[in-house]
Write a protein that binds this DNA or RNA. Structure first.
Lengths: 182, 182
DNA sequence: TCGGTTCTTGACCGCTCAGTCAAGTCCACC
DNA sequence: GGTGGACTTGACTGAGCGGTCAAGAACCGA
C-alpha cells in the first residue's frame, strides 16, 4: 500500500495503473484484487488511514494543554510536521479534494478535524483571548494556510519545517499587520 | 473551450474524454485536433488563459491605490470575486497543482502573482505598517487562505462572496488574535 | 498423506481512450 | 466555372486500461 501511495503521488491517481503497481511490487494482479475490491477502494482506504493517522498525531501533540490558543498552535505544528513526514499522503489529500468521487469522503474527515479547531477558537473567544469573528471561517483559514505553506515551502522548496511552522503560527495568530499599525 | 472547462471541472481531467467534449459540442473529433495539438495542450491553454484573466482582474481592482496594505486587500478581494465567478476554472487550477504535468506551468504563473503581493508587503513593511516577517511566506499564506476559504465557503457552502472576503481580509490582516490579547 | 482453505499467478476479456486520416464541404478569389 | 486552401467529418487504429478467472502453490490440521 505504501508503494501505491508513492506512485499515486508521483504520477497522479489516474495515470497510475493497477498493472504498474503490482509489477512494481513483483506480484500478480490477482493479489491486488484479493486484498482490494477495486483501484478506487484502495485509494479511499489510503485516504482514510492518512486522515486517521494525522488526527491521532494532532491529538497527541495537543495532549492536555489547558490554553486554547496554545492548543491551536500545537495542532498547526503537528499538522505541518505530519505533512512533512508524509509528503505523498499530503499530495494525495490535495488531489482527492479535486475529484468528485473522493471529495465527499475527504470532506467528512476534514470537517471533524476543523470542528476540533472551532472548539478551541470558541473557547479562546469566550475567554476574550481572540477577536470576535466566525470561528468556522478562521478555523478553515488556518487549515488552508498550513496546507498551502507546507506545500510551497516545505515540499516544493525544501525549507525546514520548524521555520515554516513558526511563520505559519505567527501569521495565523497575528496576521499580516500584527498590531504594527495600531 | 468553455464547455471543456465545465466538463473537466465537473468530472476531472482524466475521466473526461475528448470524444465526450466534441460530441457534447456536436462537432467531429477532427475539429478538436485542428485547433489543439492534444488534450493536454488544451488544458494548459485553459490554465494559461485563466491565470492571465485573474491577473488582469487583480491589477484592475488595485488600480493606482497608493496604500500598499489597501492594495493587498483589493487584490485579495479581486481574487475571491474572480474565483466566485469562475468556479470551474478555480477547480481546475486546484487540480493542476496536484498533477506533475501541469504543476510546473501553474507554478510559473502563481509565482508572478505572488511576486506582486510580495512587493506590496515589502513596501508596507518599509513604512512600518506591517510586522517584520518573511514577505514571501506571508504572501503565500494570504494566497492559500483566500483559495481555501473560497473553496469551502463560497463554492461548497454557497455563502456570499463579499461576506467571506471580509472575513478573509480580516484574518489576513489581523490573524486570529487581532490584538485582543495585547 | 490427504483434503480443504488460503493465497497467488498472469493470460485474457471487453472496453474505452487519445489520436489519425481519407474523404469530403465550404467559400473567397480568380 | 474552376481552383485551392481552410475547415469538418466520424470510422478507424493501436494501445492500454480495470477487472476476471482457471489453474495451481503453499500451508495446515487431521
Amino acid at each position: 500500500m505504501a508503494f501505491a501511495v508513492e506512485r499515486f503521488a508521483e504520477q497522479g491517481y489516474h495515470p497510475t495503473s493497477v498493472s504498474e503497481i503490482v509489477s512494481g511490487l513483483g506480484v500478480g494482479k490477482g493479489v491486488f484484487y484479493w486484498y482490494f475490491d477495486s483501484k478506487e477502494q484502495l485509494f479511499l482506504e489510503i485516504l482514510r488511514d492518512a486522515q486517521t493517522d494525522l488526527r491521532r498525531k494532532q491529538q497527541q501533540a495537543i495532549g492536555d494543554d489547558q490554553d486554547p490558543v496554545r492548543r491551536i498552535e500545537l495542532g498547526l505544528r503537528a499538522t505541518m510536521s505530519w505533512s512533512e513526514a508524509h509528503r505523498a499522503h499530503h499530495t494525495l489529500i490535495r488531489f482527492a479534494a479535486t475529484e468528485a468521487a473522493f471529495a465527499t469522503a475527504l470532506q467528512r474527515g476534514q470537517e471533524i478535524a476543523v470542528a476540533d479547531v472551532v472548539k478551541h477558537v470558541k473557547e479562546a473567544m469566550a475567554a476574550g483571548r481572540v477577536r470576535d469573528t466566525d470561528p468556522d471561517i478562521v478555523a478553515h483559514a488556518m487549515v488552508g494556510t498550513a496546507a498551502h505553506l507546507t506545500n510551497t515551502f516545505i515540499h516544493e522548496r525544501g525549507e525546514p519545517a520548524d521555520v515554516v511552522a513558526d511563520a505559519c503560527v505567527a501569521f495565523c495568530l497575528h496576521g499580516l499587520l500584527g498590531g504594527a499599525d495600531r
